[in-house]
Design a protein around this nucleic acid. Structure first.
Ligand code: SF4
Ligand code: SF4
Lengths: 159, 159
DNA sequence: TTATCTTGGACATGTAATATCCAGAATATG
DNA sequence: CATATTCTGGATATTACATGTCCAAGATAA
């Protein structure tokens, strides 16, 4: 899994603590963890294309959450960055095996493929059941100062 | 996930149909799906190191299953090839965040990390619950000629 | 009008997966 | 014993992809 998923998770979480209606620059989000701004910007664009963030050009522009944190599942974020493909790659080996044919889609019949897909489905189900709001609530319970500290950092950006 | 997982799954499955006590050459296993023999050999070595296969040097040597198919879970195979690391990489971003410290292991505290780990645990649980014997039984039900065809291919190797 | 900021493409870099090769060790067979 | 076979493991090459940078164009607040 690409590192961008972790960046996206943290950026979305931080955005959920921004002042309502305020957009945050890619530069400021990157400065938060000393990440490469241009590259993080690409991840934010992907989140925007997925409808998780909305973007605003120009001065006072930046990114903000496009939905309520209750409506953003962790799976949404993962899929926005990683794409919808399964991690297990079925290259349809059976086509080259005995009695294999190019005309058959073995992904539909192959038992191995089905088992691997079933397992990934469990993974997706777990991620789909947790939202950004869940994560935010847990963090706020454990570290009550985090929302204020995050907003502070948005205002007094070091870079 | 690396392609070797798929190769390993198929090779273990094919080995489960070999004559009992008979070892199968890496070359023959590779010829099955026209895979690069030297590279597949590396995957088979990994399976052997993991105790899933046993290897025999010399003439009439090769690989065979080291345990009954009922004792080989799909997770065993995946871990043997991919390693035990989680797919989600926690780079401990919080260390560079506000109030971060190099002395703290944030993987233990971070909510994001915990959620991602919980999801992967579901994935592992699903894979650990299915064995090579399950897969083999399903294949034999759907395609009864497969065991015989596989043994045939072991004997009359094209390459 | 100007400075800011996103967009998206082009491009450079780095790293890991993929693939090949070879010398050495093990071993069945004659 | 001699030989052919096969695994072992390290070195190396190749390729694919993730990572990172840069720039020109468009949008917009002030
Ligand atoms: S058996 Fe399954 S995993 Fe293997 S090639 Fe066929 S569809 Fe793919
Ligand atoms: S919040 Fe979690 S995922 Fe992010 S850096 Fe900390 S431990 Fe890692």
């Amino acid at each position: 899994m690409s590192e961008g998923v972790e960046w996206a998770m943290h950026s979305c979480l931080n955005l959920s603590w921004a002042e309502p209606g305020e957009a945050v620059t890619a530069r400021r989000l990157a400065a938060f963890y000393d990440l490469p701004p241009a590259y993080l910007n690409k991840q934010l664009q992907a989140l925007a294309r997925a409808g998780i963030l909305s973007s605003v050009s120009g001065p006072r522009g930046g990114f903000r959450l496009n939905r309520a944190p209750e409506q953003i599942s962790l799976l949404d974020i993962v899929v926005a960055i990683e794409g919808p493909e399964d991690a297990f790659r079925c290259e349809q080996l059976l086509r080259k095996g005995p009695g294999g044919s190019d005309d058959v889609d073995y992904r539909a019949h192959c038992v191995i493929s089905q088992e691997m897909r079933a397992a990934e489905l469990e993974w997706r189900r777990a991620l789909a059941g947790r939202t950004l709001a869940d994560v935010r609530a847990t963090v706020e319970t454990r570290f009550p100062h985090t929302p204020e500290a995050t907003r502070d950092r948005f205002v007094n950006a070091p870079t």
